[in-house]
Amino acid sequence: MDELIRSVSNPVIKSIRKLSENRSERRRTGRFLIEGYKVCIEALRRPGLVELVLLSDEANEMEGALLADATAQAGVELRWVTGSVLRSVSDSQSPQGVTAKCIVPPQFSFAPDSKGPIFWLDQLQDPGNVGAVIRVASAMGHVGVLVSQGSADPFSPKATRASAGQNLVVPILTEFDPQAVAMRCRESGGRVLIADSAGGIPIWEAGGLGNCLVVLGSEGAGPSAEVRALADRTVLIPMDGGVESLNVAVSAGIIAYEAYRSAQIG
Rank of each mutant, 00 (worst) to 15 (best):
A229E: 14
S109W: 08
V76M: 01
K115Y: 14
A137L: 02
R28F: 11
G266I: 00
E58P: 03
L173W: 10
V169P: 02
G242T: 01
L44K: 03
G165I: 03
I34T: 00
I254N: 04
R87T: 11
V39L: 01
L67K: 09
S197D: 07
L49A: 09
S114N: 03
G36Q: 02
V227S: 04
K158Y: 08
I134T: 06
Q125W: 10
E25L: 01
V133E: 02
C40E: 02
K18C: 03
V248S: 05
I13C: 09
G144F: 01
S109C: 06
G266K: 13
P178C: 14
D240C: 06
S218D: 15
L168C: 15
Y260V: 10
I255H: 06
D126W: 11
S9Q: 12
S7Q: 14
I265T: 15
A139M: 14
V235S: 05
G64W: 00
E42K: 15
S94L: 09
Y257V: 05
V192K: 06
I34Q: 02
V89K: 08
V192C: 08
G242H: 01
T82N: 12
V235Y: 00
L54N: 03
L246C: 07
A65V: 05
D196G: 11
V133P: 08
S163A: 15
I194L: 12
P178I: 14
R26S: 08
I172D: 04
P157S: 03
F108I: 10
L146Y: 12
P47L: 01
V250T: 13
V143T: 15
V53W: 06
R23P: 10
D196Q: 08
R191Q: 11
N129W: 04
L121F: 00
S163R: 07
G144W: 07
S218F: 04
L246I: 06
D57H: 02
Y257A: 08
A182S: 13
G116L: 12
V12Q: 05
V169L: 07
Q123L: 14
D2W: 03
G128Y: 09
E187I: 02
I265R: 15
V8T: 14
A59G: 06
S109P: 03
A249Q: 06
A159R: 05
A70I: 05
M183D: 11
G241Q: 05
R135E: 07
D177Q: 12
I172Q: 03
R261F: 14
G48M: 04
V248W: 02
I134F: 12
V143C: 14
P157V: 06
G141Q: 11
L236W: 04
Q93L: 14
I237H: 02
R6M: 10
F32C: 03
F176D: 12
L49F: 07
R79K: 15
G144K: 04
L54Q: 03
V192T: 09
I134M: 09
L168N: 15
G97V: 05
G217T: 08
L146Q: 07
S262L: 12
Y37D: 06
C212E: 00
A164H: 12
A70M: 08
G30F: 02
R17S: 12
S218V: 08
E226Y: 01
R135H: 13
S156P: 07
L209R: 00
R228L: 13
V147F: 15
V98W: 01
P223M: 11
T99L: 14
I16E: 07
G266C: 10
S251G: 15
S251W: 04
G144I: 00
V8P: 06
Q93A: 11
G242S: 07
